[in-house]
């Protein structure tokens, strides 16, 4: 509920472990890959997504229905986790879930910038972060970016956004605002963690995520051929890269993978990294890093059963499930074959 009071990892972990059992496994994915979008929606209706599919079924159809139901369910589950958590556990979980706040803020800003309908923006929001419904409603009703900045005044995004707003007014591009949001998120992700052994492990996990994100961004930039310096998009806080090494390594996939394999992650992530070495394309690299993070999270969840780590491990697994189902649905819509879709999935 809030960061006050003593923490209750036992309760949250028990609930989260029960929910983990109902995530889709290999078997379900194999079935889903052979289904058409309406069949997927039906399949989801018969499992954990029943409430969302029923609620949205009258307004949307086809792949959109699946997509919105997935988002709604994700938001619901994560909101519930935040509701259950108290004290220290809440603090640790909300750090990670704030990424949905960042996503929502960016979506709203983009919506205003492009004059999109409020309804269109609303369905793209994922209400899983720490913002309550009232703040989200106010964000949706905001008619200018200045108003958005004002609404977020008392959040962690307030100051950075205000600072970036001047840049935005000067250049009329969204990059400074979006960077400000991202930076606020990453600053608070790793700031003043400290604490006991599980928390340190959690911190290492978050750093791994930042590292992989950096590697991925650098590769994307390098592959896109755009004349942009990867160092400009560097996220502080990881331990593997600094600006200079990242710019140097981004040009060469093999070197980058060897660099990661030789690093501290090599010991922990042996198998996943071997896959990474075999990964020849950017997508395969991204999937391998995703799978590596999942494995990492799972391992932590087993080492410290009563701590924040199993909760994070569930959050990751759930996100992965949502992305997998979305990939299947979108792939089917685009007419991809089963094999191609299967190669898009990240299954542990």
């Amino acid at each position: 509920m809030s960061a006050a009071g003593s923490s209750n990892p036992e309760y949250v972990v028990a609930r989260v472990r029960a929910r983990r059992g109902s995530l889709y496994g290999d078997e379900e994915y194999r079935k889903l890959v052979r289904m058409s979008p309406p069949e997927i929606a039906r399949f989801m209706e018969e499992s954990t997504y029943e409430a969302e599919i029923n609620a949205l079924g009258s307004r949307h159809g086809g792949v959109d229905l699946i997509e919105y139901a997935l988002n709604a369910n994700l938001a619901d589950q994560f909101e519930a986790i935040l509701d259950w958590s108290e004290g220290r556990v809440y603090d640790l979980v909300v750090r990670y879930l704030r990424k949905f706040d960042a996503w929502n803020v960016k979506t709203v800003i983009r919506g205003i910038y492009t004059d999109a309908d409020t309804e269109d923006v609303e369905v793209d929001l994922i209400r899983a972060g720490s913002f309550d419904d009232r703040r989200i409603q106010r964000l949706l009703e905001a008619d200018s970016i200045e108003a958005v900045v004002e609404i977020l005044e008392d959040t962690i995004y307030g100051e950075p956004l205000e600072a970036a707003y001047a840049d935005f007014q000067e250049a009329d591009v969204l990059v400074p605002l979006e960077n400000a949001v991202d930076r606020a998120f990453y600053d608070h992700l790793l700031g003043s963690l400290g604490g006991d052994e599980p928390t340190r492990q959690y911190e290492r996990f978050l750093k791994a995520e930042v590292d992989f994100r950096n590697a991925r961004n650098a590769l994307r930039l390098a592959r896109s051929g755009a004349d942009l310096d990867p160092a400009d998009y560097f996220i502080e806080g990881g331990e593997l890269f600094d600006r200079a090494t990242l710019s140097r390594l981004a040009a060469n996939l093999d070197e980058l993978v060897t660099y990661i394999a030789d690093s501290t992650y090599g010991d922990d992530l042996g198998d996943a990294l071997r896959e990474l070495e075999e990964a020849d394309s950017l997508i395969a690299f991204e999937h391998a890093t995703d799978a590596a993070l999942l494995t990492y999270g799972d391992r932590l969840g087993t080492i410290h059963p009563v701590s924040v780590t199993p909760i994070i491990s569930y959050i990751l697994a759930k996100e992965r499930e949502v992305e997998n189902i979305r990939a299947i649905a979108r792939g089917k819509e685009a007419g991809l074959g089963s094999d191609e879709i299967e190669s898009e999935l990240v299954i542990q």
């Binding site: 309760y11 949250v12 972990v13 609930r15």
Partner: peptide
């Protein structure tokens, strides 16, 4: 205290527990 809160959490998800 610990076992109870975990048990209640598990029961909330699945009453058969």
């Amino acid at each position: 205290r610990g076992i109870g809160s975990a048990a209640v959490g598990a029961m909330a998800e699945d009453e058969s527990l």
